[in-house]
């Protein structure tokens, strides 16, 4: 079934737990689109052949067609209510506007700029102070005097994540609006200067996935690319241990 759907409606191979619900809705809504379009198309071809002027020289009123059409309209209403209240609104409440539940969550901060993603980890679990004053010294403006920043890791365009662990990524921007798009995880979120936004997901497939900036941010927009590397927990722990306190 999944294979068939994937052939009919090809999307990126899914690599997160939460993305499945999104895919389900994607299949359903396209099913509705398909039914309506094919139904109307069949009617259209029939009506254009049946009532062509060369065959039907005099127009007549009909009432059966009205009946059928009002059934179609009610069908659309019911289908839309269902998709809206059973799928789309709950999905948004949990996955987009909501925060992940549970304690064992990895937190990562991402600061976008023209045309790169700055990534920051706090292995101790505490992010120290950061300020625009220090942006001249380091790309994320980490306060060098704050002891909590000592073990922080910063990278550019590279995010490392352990598999099967929920990650909460906090997004801010230095300059213009960017958008953190990660197609494989079915995640996308605008990154807006002056605001803090976030995304969260649970990667469940090892591999490297591309982050594509999805909001026009200037001449380099097309190459504002980052990589999410999903690795095993032990590889992740090793990477953290090796990079503690290192700022790219």
């Amino acid at each position: 079934m999944d294979n068939l759907l994937q052939k009919l409606l090809p999307m990126q191979p899914l690599a997160s737990v939460e993305g499945r619900d999104n895919d389900t809705l994607m299949y359903l809504i396209h099913g509705l689109v398909l039914i309506l379009f094919v139904g109307w198309a069949i009617y259209y071809v029939v009506v254009l052949i049946k009532f062509r002027a060369t065959k039907n020289s005099k127009a007549v009123e009909s009432h059966t067609a009205h009946q059928i059409s009002s059934y179609v309209e009610w069908f659309v209403v019911v289908a839309e209510i269902l998709l809206l209240f059973a799928f789309s609104i709950p999905f948004w409440a949990v996955h987009q506007a909501g925060m992940p539940t549970g304690k064992d969550i990895l937190q990562v901060r991402v600061v976008a700029q023209q045309f790169a993603w700055n990534v920051r980890y706090a292995p101790s679990g505490k992010f120290g102070r950061s300020s625009a004053r220090f942006l001249d010294d380091n790309p994320m403006g980490l306060d060098p005097n704050d002891p909590d920043n000592k073990d922080n890791i910063t990278t550019m365009n590279q995010i490392y994540l352990p598999i099967d662990k929920t990650v909460l990524i906090t997004l801010t921007s230095k300059d213009v609006i960017h958008s953190f798009g990660l197609p494989a995880m079915r995640v996308k979120q605008d990154v807006i200067p002056g605001m803090t936004t976030h995304v969260w997901f649970t990667p469940n497939k090892l591999g490297s996935y591309e982050i594509a900036c999805s909001q026009l941010c200037g001449v380099g927009h097309y190459r504002m690319r980052g990589i999410v590397n999903v690795v095993s927990q032990s590889d992740f722990d090793q990477w953290i241990a090796q990079n503690k306190g290192i700022h790219d």
């Binding site: 999104n22 809705l25 809504i29 379009f37 789309s88 079915r186 999805s214």
Partner: peptide
Amino acid sequence: LPMFGFGGLTGLPLGLAATDIPLHDT
């Protein structure tokens, strides 16, 4: 009629906020 209709129908996945996430700005 059918072309405009198809344009309208493909607006549905974008109108639902959940399916707009992967489709937005694509």
